[in-house]
Simulated assay, not measured.
Amino acid sequence: MNIAAMIKLTVAMAIFGSIGFFTIHTGIPAVELVFIRCICATLFLGGMWLIVGGHKSEKWNKKEIEKTLLCGIFLVLNWVFLFKAFEEMSISIAISIYNLAPIFVLILGVVLLAEKMSFGAILATIVCFIGSILIVGLENFSSFNDFASSGFGWALLSAVCYALTVFISKTISGVSSYALTFLQTIVGILMLFPFCDFTVFEGLTTTNWLYILGTGIIHTGFVYYLFFDSIRNLSTVVVSVLVFVDPVVAILLDVLILSFSPSIVQIAGILLIFGSILYTVYYPTKVSHR
């Protein structure tokens, strides 16, 4: 067990748990916020990369660079979709749906790697989706307009893109963590520049800019360096368990600071989702040690 990697991932997830709180105080839409995050992270990680001299010893492999760039596309889409979800629904609800990602990683393994999926895993997947419907509310599925305005679709897309990011990044080993995230945030800048409305930056307060820079330097640069540096040294099961630090922090902040008060049905949905995910990542490990 790589203790240092576990600590890095735990710290990264704890910090990332506050991203929803920061996002709603930036005062700008999802696309523009992700664009600024990518600029801040590129400068931060590029500077760190130069300071530690990593650029001198970096070994470039065409196949791994292609994977890194593809991973960058999914990473940026994951951010945009998650922030769009924050605009439409409570942070707690969005984060709960977002953390369906481990289930999607499992499904990707079945589809792309021909891994076998047990009956328990299939049942857990079904229960997760039932839980996600409960926390959004059955009434929001009565018509397409209600569904579209609920933010469910954005949160679900963010989970899928996050799963693809984790799935692909686990196959990248020759690119340093600095170079990996640096290249991915460059991809974000190029992707989002044509879609940015720069008028949204007019009239922002100092507080808005502090939250914006915080999401860029801390939540993007620092956190994603820790994230990608740690997951390559940890098993998928350990990564899947430690990412639970993120929603725990997010939900606590939402309840304690933003006064979110979930209904009994929403609490049941949250418990169904996280209970099923814990079963999915823990039960196979338990069985393998019998």
Rank of each mutant, 00 (worst) to 15 (best):
L75K: 00
I212W: 04
T185N: 12
G27I: 02
L213Q: 05
T68C: 14
S240D: 02
M1D: 07
R37T: 07
I24Y: 05
M117S: 15
F193L: 15
L70D: 01
V239K: 06
E202A: 12
I95R: 06
A85D: 06
S176W: 01
I51E: 01
Q266N: 10
F44V: 07
S263T: 15
S240N: 11
E58R: 06
C71G: 05
V11K: 02
L242M: 13
G214C: 07
C128G: 08
L138A: 11
D246R: 00
S263D: 04
L272E: 11
Y98V: 07
A4M: 10
V111T: 12
S169F: 00
I28P: 08
H289Y: 08
L138F: 15
V34P: 02
P29V: 09
E202T: 10
V243F: 05
I15M: 13
T206A: 15
C71N: 13
V281G: 07
S149K: 10
I231Y: 04
A41F: 03
V110C: 14
K67H: 07
S276W: 13
D146F: 02
V241I: 14
L75P: 00
T26P: 08
S96Y: 03
A101G: 03
N145Q: 15
F167K: 10
V239L: 09
V105D: 03
F104E: 04
G47D: 02
T181Q: 05
N78A: 06
V239R: 04
K116Y: 08
S240E: 06
F44N: 03
W79C: 00
I186A: 11
I277T: 13
C196P: 07
I93V: 15
I189N: 11
S235G: 14
G188S: 12
I130D: 10
S263Y: 01
F141N: 10
K170H: 09
F198T: 11
S288M: 09
S235W: 04
F198M: 13
G120H: 12
G47Q: 04
V223N: 02
L180H: 13
K170G: 11
G188N: 09
E58Y: 08
T280L: 13
V187A: 09
H219W: 03
K67A: 10
E202D: 14
V160E: 00
I3H: 10
I251C: 02
L75A: 01
T68P: 05
I172N: 01
F244Y: 10
I15G: 04
M191I: 09
V223P: 04
I7C: 02
I168M: 11
T280W: 05
E139R: 15
F119T: 12
F35S: 05
P284C: 12
G275F: 13
E115P: 07
V241F: 12
V166A: 14
P194A: 14
G46Q: 06
W79Q: 05
D254S: 14
L242F: 14
L123A: 12
T215K: 02
K286E: 11
S240Y: 02
F44P: 06
Y224T: 01
I97T: 08
E202F: 10
A163C: 08
A121Q: 15
V80P: 01
F222K: 00
N233R: 05
V175G: 02
F86R: 08
